[in-house]
C-alpha cells in the first residue's frame, strides 16, 4: 500500500470513527408505549400469577367442601342421630342389665330366660327408634 493509500485509509478510518461515535450518541430510546406493551406481556406471561391463583382457588375449594359437608350433615341430621340413638340404647340396656345382676334381681342366665329379657328384646328396637327420632 502506498503512502497515499495509507493516508486515504486513515481518513476513511477516521470517518468511520466519527460515524460510529455519532451513532452511539444518537441511540434511540424506547418510548413509553413500547415499555407499556412489554410490561403488559410480562405480566400476562408471568408464570407465578397462575401458580398464586391456583393455591388460592384450591384453599377456597377445601373450605367450600367443608362448608358443604357441614350443611349436608345439618340437613341430614337424622343420619347422625340414628346411630347415636342406637348406641345410647345399647349402653342403657347393658347398664340396666348389669345393675339388675349386681342387685340380685336376676342372674345372667336367669335374666336371659326371663320374661323381662323377652320384653326388653321386643321393646328395645322400638325404644332405639324413639330415641333416634324414628
Amino acid at each position: 500500500m502506498t503512502d497515499d493509500g495509507k493516508d486515504e485509509d486513515g481518513g476513511a478510518e477516521a470517518m468511520l470513527t466519527v460515524l460510529f461515535s455519532e451513532a452511539r450518541a444518537t441511540r434511540p430510546g424506547p418510548n413509553a408505549a413500547l415499555l407499556e406493551r412489554i410490561a403488559a406481556d410480562a405480566l400476562a406471561a408471568q408464570p407465578h400469577a397462575a401458580a398464586v391463583s391456583g393455591p388460592q382457588r384450591a384453599a377456597g375449594s377445601v373450605q367450600g367442601r367443608l362448608l358443604r359437608v357441614g350443611q349436608a350433615a345439618l340437613a341430614r341430621w337424622e343420619a347422625l342421630a340414628w346411630p347415636a340413638g342406637v348406641a345410647a340404647t345399647v349402653l342403657a340396656g347393658v347398664w340396666l342389665g348389669g345393675w339388675a345382676d349386681v342387685n340380685g334381681f336376676v342372674s345372667g342366665a336367669g335374666f336371659a330366660q326371663s320374661g323381662l329379657a323377652l320384653t326388653l328384646a321386643q321393646g328395645l328396637p322400638g325404644a332405639a327408634g324413639w330415641i333416634g327420632g324414628y
Binding site: 415499555l35 412489554i38 410490561a39 410480562a42 405480566l43 408471568q46 408464570p47 407465578h48 400469577a49 401458580a51
Partner: peptide, 12 residues
C-alpha cells in the same frame, strides 16, 4: 418467574 412484577419492570 417467582411472581415479582417489579422485577419484570426492572429487567425491561
Amino acid at each position: 418467574s417467582a411472581g415479582d412484577r417489579a422485577a419484570a419492570l426492572a429487567l425491561t
